[in-house]
Nucleic acid binder design. Sequence first.
DNA 1: AACTGTGAACTATTTCACAGCA
DNA 2: TGCTGTGAAATAGTTCACAGTT
Lengths: 264, 264
Amino acid sequence: MATGRAHRPATRSRGIPEATVARLPLYLRALTTLSERSVPTVSSEELAAAAGVNSAKLRKDFSYLGSYGTRGVGYDVEYLVYQISRELGLTQDWPVVIVGIGNLGAALANYGGFASRGFRVAALIDADPAMAGKPVAGIPVQHSDDLERIIEENGVSIGVIATPAGAAQQVCDRLVAAGVTSILNFAPTVLSVPDGVDVRKVDLSIELQILAFHEQRKAGEDTAGEGGVDTTPPAAPPAAAVRRRTDDGTEQGPDGDVPAVMPA
Amino acid sequence: MATGRAHRPATRSRGIPEATVARLPLYLRALTTLSERSVPTVSSEELAAAAGVNSAKLRKDFSYLGSYGTRGVGYDVEYLVYQISRELGLTQDWPVVIVGIGNLGAALANYGGFASRGFRVAALIDADPAMAGKPVAGIPVQHSDDLERIIEENGVSIGVIATPAGAAQQVCDRLVAAGVTSILNFAPTVLSVPDGVDVRKVDLSIELQILAFHEQRKAGEDTAGEGGVDTTPPAAPPAAAVRRRTDDGTEQGPDGDVPAVMPA
DNA sequence: AACTGTGAACTATTTCACAGCA
DNA sequence: TGCTGTGAAATAGTTCACAGTT
């Protein structure tokens, strides 16, 4: 059992950089908007602005896909939509199951961005018998006892986990055993999966913590310790000597923290 | 108006790499779990496994914070929890507003991971008058007319946008005008913000698209075109010559896509 | 003996800047 | 002339491997 993702480091056939892959959906969204407005062509500069990146990066990214632009003109919007969709595998239909139909699961089920991009919510699964049969986003929730059958019958290879943290690994194991090879995990846990299974994590609180880090920096530049209320005094240092690399003298309290659990 | 984040490229005081900052919450979660189990110390190897990274990376990351370990022994769990919390700014109390109380907003309001990490949901705001006064996660929803007042009265500097895409920029502008300097955006739009305002984006469908890309690769290695159902034929190429870098002959259809909208 | 902390090597990603084409 | 496509340079991030410490 390996932990985490398995991004085929060897046998990398056409080698599109991971950073580029992560931006393709961004470009696709921007292009889709242009397409709706019937804009026929777009320059790298314009498209980059719409996608929130710089144009050199965008051109480099596209160069990994092929030469789909026209010098002096720009890119054909429709054609580029098609090429990126194809590259991402969105010209196929991907049946997806969502496990854990709490607020978050329901939000995901209702999320228009899935259906419109080649993803089809094949089933909603929850462990609560009281949920069974209830329609969410027009799809009846099924009990998790039937998880394996549902996966197999629908040929599902992508699963979304929106359960509480405590249930996530177990759900993950069952999904994988039933044939799922890609998992999008919203539960705040590190999942262990065998080689060949991809896991991506979306963590709602991690993003906020990153913002807090930068926010703290901003406050520290003007007046020290603005923008929040300090708490209790510093924790006792460990037995060993502690030599901090740098120290700004800001001392705050420790933190009786509790691991996060998703809404069920 | 600059687009996107503004990560103080100059004046970078103590220079912790962005990639490291992004992992600190991961370490913190793993440490918190250990702390609850009353584990007193942990080695880089063990902690790395719990956090899902490798130990060299973890040690390097910690080296940017200071020398908080003891050679031959490991790291003091409680002390490290404190140091990372402090570095991330989580020893302060951060009042947060959530704008857009649909399924997703409700999921966020109920999410235990916020409250337990220095974040306090100061207010829930929605544009629907019918929502006003209704309690979600024990907090009454307030109408967006009062957004500015709420921000100012509570000294909020971090805002979470969980509105439909169409409303996001407008909400963002109002948040920023009222004094918010960090935004977590769940709406599938690129937000324009002035310099000095940080934006982080969580996009539910982008992650799935990245999984689909890798999933497609897996399928393509064994039998070509397994794991999904193909759709219509290729779009017409643009007027100009098209020379693809490589081509695997897989031709699929274009895609009359619609921009995703979050559940309101 | 065990384990951290860290230069140095390596790999990935971004940005520059300009040749080449329509 | 205007804009793409891309080598080359610059920067960021990861991994190695081992000296140093308890």
